[in-house]
Design a protein around this nucleic acid. Sequence first.
DNA 1: TGAATTGTTATCGT
DNA 2: AACGATAACAATTC
Length: 296
Amino acid sequence: MPELPEVETIVRACRPRLEGRSIMRFRSLWARQAVPSVPAVRAGVTGRRIVRLERRGKFIVFALDDDARLLVHLRMSGRFEFAGDSQGEPRHVRAVWDLDDGSRLLFCDARKFGRVMYTRDGRTWSDGLGAEPLASRFTAAWLGRALAARARALKPLLLDQSVIAGLGNIYTDEALHRAGLHPLRRSDTVQPGEVRALRNAIRAVLTEGIRRQGTTIDWIYPGGRMQERLRVYGRGGEACDRCGDTILTLRVGQRGTHICPTCQPHPKSKRNSAGSRIRVPDRPARHAPRDAACAE
DNA sequence: TGAATTGTTATCGT
DNA sequence: AACGATAACAATTC
């Protein structure tokens, strides 16, 4: 579940070992991770020097010396490891980069959701990604316009990578709690003072997350200490540190969601009855597998 | 065993 | 028609 702070921590840790290195060889042990294809990635990166290692949203960006980019998305369970760093054989190795100093970078990914993407389009590959929440342009005014431009529940909007890039489930819940906003609050009803609180809360949780090197809640991401500072995430049934009320776990947009009902009062009564309509798809409408049509 | 997790895509409803 | 909500999906661990 690496979100922005975890990815930033990984990038900072890998930067001294990757910047300036040349890629001698690339191997993929899981064909579907490579976009557009394993041969395309291999041809693109072999012999190239890594000029900079950067982060954009939750993407790790290898800026290559020919202006092409290698993008790695860790998705749920991806992680980087250097060969020899840990005792024993690394598990779930899906890709390997041999570098010119003899070191080897491993991409390990138990669930195989991670992606390694090669693009020559250094300028516009990230056009579909939203604002960087820690950039100076991420102001209350900008966020206010983004919220007002849509009529969506706050939490799904904050999780939408095309609006803001980098927030995931943990930091979204934390930011909403710190801002005192309910995850189902409609984005276009948020008042200016609340927008400022939300903007500041987002930056505060992400900054603190980076300072504490991310959140470690399971075996996927080791080394973080932000879990000690979480106020709602994973704390259903416990007392809110701020008001003492019991933290609730609910379901918002198919995501486990944690709130303090006192600090984050529900918007209005239950005016939006759309949310109460439970539509049961009588038939999952299984479509014919489309792999017949699009051979890869 | 089923729940949990991310982001993309297809589809349904308004 | 455009937008928002929803579900399915990829795969694995506990």
